[in-house]
Simulated assay, not measured.
Amino acid sequence: MATVSVNGVDVAYDESGRGPALLLLHAGIADRRMWDDVTPMLAERFRVVAPDLRGFGETPVPDGPFVYAADAAALLESLGIEHAHVVGVSLGGHVALDLALAHPDLVDRLVLVGAGIDGWQHDPALVAAWDEEAAAFERGDLDEVAWINVRTWLDGPTRGEDVVPKALRRRVFEMQRAALEHENPAAEGGWLTPSRRESLGEVTRPTLVLVGALDQRGFRQIARLLAEEIPGAELIELPAVAHLPPLEHPEAFARTLLQFLPAA
Rank of each mutant, 00 (worst) to 15 (best):
F46H: 08
P104G: 10
Y68L: 08
F56R: 08
D98C: 04
D71G: 03
R139E: 14
D63L: 11
V127D: 14
A134C: 00
R45C: 06
L101C: 06
A134T: 03
D63F: 12
L101N: 03
Q121G: 12
A129I: 06
L112G: 03
D108V: 12
D98Q: 05
A134Y: 07
D108Y: 05
D143C: 00
V49E: 10
S78K: 14
D63A: 15
E58N: 10
F46T: 01
G55H: 06
F56N: 12
V86D: 05
D52N: 03
R109W: 09
P51R: 07
G93V: 07
P124A: 06
A72E: 15
D52Y: 02
M41R: 14
P124Q: 05
A43I: 02
G57A: 10
A50P: 10
E82C: 00
V107P: 04
V49F: 10
L101W: 02
L106P: 08
E82Y: 00
G57F: 07
W130T: 07
A72T: 11
L99R: 01
L53Y: 09
G57Y: 08
V95G: 06
E58T: 00
M41D: 14
R45N: 06
G88P: 07
H83M: 08
W120H: 12
E77H: 13
Y68P: 04
E82P: 00
E133H: 11
V61A: 15
A102V: 03
V89Y: 09
D71F: 04
A73N: 13
W130S: 10
L76V: 06
R47Y: 05
V95T: 12
A43G: 05
F137M: 12
V127P: 02
A125D: 15
F56S: 13
L106F: 11
L91I: 10
P104H: 11
R109H: 15
G140Q: 02
P62S: 11
L75D: 13
D63S: 15
V49Q: 09
H83I: 00
G92R: 09
S90V: 00
L142E: 09
R139G: 12
A74P: 01
P65R: 13
D52W: 02
V111T: 05
T39P: 03
E144N: 02
F66V: 04
F46Y: 15
T59R: 10
R139H: 12
V86G: 04
E82F: 00
F56C: 12
T39S: 13
D131N: 09
D71T: 01
V95Q: 03
